[in-house]
Every structure is written in C-alpha cells, then in structure tokens.
Design a protein around this nucleic acid. Structure first.
Length: 104
DNA sequence: TGGATGACCTTAA
DNA sequence: ATTAAGGCCATCC
C-alpha cells in the first residue's frame, strides 16, 4: 500500500456522518490532483476491506455516480439515513454537505 | 468551446 | 485465485 492510498483511506474514513466528499477533492487532499480514479478504485475494490464509508463519497457534481436502480439506491438510502437531502436524480446539496478536513 | 471530473480496466506479485 | 497499484481521455455542463 502506497502513501496515496493510505491518505485516501484516512480521508474517506474521516468523513463525518451527514457529510459527503467528491473524488477529486479526496484525490487532491491525498496528494494527487489527477488521482481521482484511484480513489474510485479504492472505494470500489477495498471499501469493505478497509471499512470505508463509500456511501459518503459522491462525484463533484453532488450526485450519485452509481446506478440509482442498483447500488445507487442503497447509497441514497444510507445518505438519507444520515440526514442528507437527496433529489430524485440523486442530487445532493454538496455545497452544504461538502466536508473539508483541511478547512476544518 | 473548454475544463474539470470520474464508482474502471489492466498488469504484477 | 486474490489483492494492490497506476493512469489518461471521453463526457457533461
């Protein structure tokens, strides 16, 4: 495991309940402005192994990148359980729920 | 148009 | 077989 992946895991694990982050932001905070896809891979491949709150990670548009008919629906339910308001298209108030560990 | 974003695919150990 | 690491270009507003 390299440092980047480790940072990503820490950052993602640091996302508090009721907050969400985007891939790009996590990648930047992790140290790789172009490593958003690596964050994706980590979430998709090692989410269970590392116990990452993948449901709190969405795209930069504040929407669910997953299929709302499959995993996306599950994520929507999880986010709603945390108090996050989600639109019918999976739109989330990223402006309100954006989590900035650096700013915090 | 242009620029930021991305829930993958491939290779190696 | 599984786990881990790495990246670039099409897509959407």
């Amino acid at each position: 495991m390299n440092e980047f992946s480790n940072e990503c895991i820490k950052i993602i694990s640091s996302i508090p309940k009721g907050k969400v982050m985007s891939y790009g932001q996590i990648a930047i905070l992790a140290g790789s402005p172009r490593g958003a896809r690596q964050v994706v891979r980590l979430l998709h491949s090692s989410s269970d192994k590392y116990r990452l709150p993948w449901h709190r990670v969405i795209n930069g548009q504040g929407k669910i990148s997953l299929d709302l008919h499959s995993d996306g629906e599950l994520q929507v339910q999880l986010l709603e359980s945390e108090g996050i308001e989600i639109g019918l298209i999976g739109k989330i108030d990223i402006n309100k729920y954006r989590w900035n560990p650096d700013c915090q």
